[in-house]
Nucleic acid binder design. Structure first.
Lengths: 100, 100
DNA sequence: TGATTATATTTTGATATAATAATAACCTAA
DNA sequence: TTAGGTTATTATTATATCAAAATATAATCA
């Protein structure tokens, strides 16, 4: 596979991370700061395994990272492209976010 | 479904359009200007039905539009978010594009 | 009209993704 | 070390997506 093909593959994988509403929710929440899985589950009102599965997808793509803090595992945005994307395309669509 | 849920659904559908390397290629090509299906097929070296299928996905999401011009059908970028996305995230990753 | 070119749709089979349930692993505190 | 709370993984089933092939539609030209 050529270099350009690889770039396109990687880019499409990146966008695939955003192509599910639950993952979008997770990403939007993490944009406000690192969160542990438990908090995410409560905020999004979803089952723990489901949250965990989507987090593992985001982790595998390098979009989020995590660190253990005692009994909790704290997730945070890792890929710098997420911030760009959030600022120009996501933030302004969300009614509950101020458009500073 | 709440308003916010709908927004997230729509956004995730939008990103899903970019989550396949062939569709990325098509979008990148159309960013340089409208193209007919035949040209796209030749440029990308892909079968006509395959191009056409991906175009119909992009069409259904409102990302591209098309108009008939004689015997050809000309596709163009329709969703204004595409240009934003292209400029901040896609363009700079492509080695064959100048980063003006 | 029939033939040709351009494009779209449909179908099929293979593969990937999703939700859910069950279980396992890990940490902390008693 | 056991118990309880937190997170991850696995298995299963349902659904979605993909590529490829076959077929259908639409316009043009002879």
């Amino acid at each position: 596979m050529s270099k350009d093909e690889e770039i396109l593959e990687e880019l499409s994988e990146f966008f695939k991370a955003f192509s599910h509403p639950v993952r979008l929710k997770i990403i939007i929440n993490l944009m406000e700061g690192p969160q542990c899985v438990k908090n995410l589950g409560e905020t999004l009102d979803m089952s723990q395994p489901s949250i965990s599965q989507h987090l593992s997808i985001l982790r595998n793509k390098g979009i989020v990272g995590c660190r253990r803090e005692g009994s909790l595992i704290c997730y945070y945005i890792k890929d710098p492209r997420v911030k760009k994307l959030y600022n120009i395309l996501i933030k302004e669509e969300l009614s509950w976010q101020e458009k500073s």
